[in-house]
Design a protein around this nucleic acid. Structure first.
Lengths: 161, 161
DNA sequence: CGGCTTCTTTTGACTGAATCAAAACAAGCC
DNA sequence: GGCTTGTTTTGATTCAGTCAAAAGAAGCCG
């Protein structure tokens, strides 16, 4: 029943890589799978995940791959204040992020105003603006209702506290 | 001619500190003076500046002071992606920043929409949003006109490149 | 003024995140 | 199958920032 189908219908990691002119390697494919599984993963989370299927992968390899994929426009790297970099597969739309000041969970938010370089200021004080990046800070549902005071992995060290 | 004036008219560092319930020390005052002189200073720039007048000050002291002042709401700390933290005295209005992707210079931008927690999404996906932080990325006047290709301290390692 | 308590600062070690560099290895092309 | 170029490993290194203990100063109280 599988033989009548073209080998790959869903654009799997391999073809995305090839399309970007990158060699297809296990680590790269596994990093992409990890990112698909973990919405806003840090390098370390990706590393842990990749090692489940490729136990010999080095941390450096993961950094390389994430760097390569970012440079190729296949993943996007965000870096909220006070946190290590996070990676996501959703690229191309310049969407934004809400981050819980209590537990650090990150969620996507669609672009606040219109399309990509949203938020118009096009030439502020001599600058030609290419992109506007918005980070919302607040409390997620869980932290609001549940054990508010407990969880606190203290993300807010750099924010008001 | 000076005796008829109240001791301090302009709200100097000392009184700001006292008002915040912090002890007045040389390092704290000098850090505030440094921040007034350098618009978006990194911890290191502050350290260098403070040591011009207090040559024995330790780096740790500067970190302590910056932390204390930030916690007291006297300074604001921002941390653009791919850069170390920057500090500024302008607090209270939630203003935003434009950063040159070529040379890294930072400039202030007034709040995009209305007052402080600007950009309305107040309950996105279960989040209660307290604050929106906007970072604009673009090219500053100098980098646009002048020796564009040269300067590049490569800030953009984490951005598209 | 002198002493005391508490807050600051110094010193120096240490962490986490990420980068650099050279050698070993594998993809993809002929 | 062999070669070239791009990847991955290994291990050291940087940078920004934090931790902790001991020494020192600010501000209060009598």
């Amino acid at each position: 029943m599988t033989t009548t189908q073209p080998a790959t219908l869903a654009p799997d990691g391999a073809s995305v890589l090839r399309a970007a002119g990158l060699r297809v390697t296990d680590s790269r494919v596994q990093v992409m799978i990890a990112l698909a599984a973990i919405p806003h993963a840090g390098a370390d989370a990706v590393y842990a995940r990749v090692r489940e299927s490729l136990p010999n992968t080095s941390r450096q390899a993961v950094y390389n791959v994430l760097g390569d994929l970012t440079r190729a426009g296949i993943v996007r790297r965000i870096e909220p204040a006070g946190q290590p970099g996070l990676f996501e597969l959703r690229v191309g739309d310049n969407h934004h992020h809400v981050i819980c000041t209590n537990c650090g969970v990150v969620a996507d938010v669609d672009c606040a105003v219109g399309h990509a370089p949203c938020l118009t200021p096009s030439t502020e004080g001599g600058f030609v603006i290419a992109e506007a990046e918005v980070t919302y800070w607040g409390l997620c549902g869980d932290c609001r209702s549940g054990s508010t005071a407990q969880v606190s992995t203290n993300l807010i060290s750099t924010k008001e506290k």
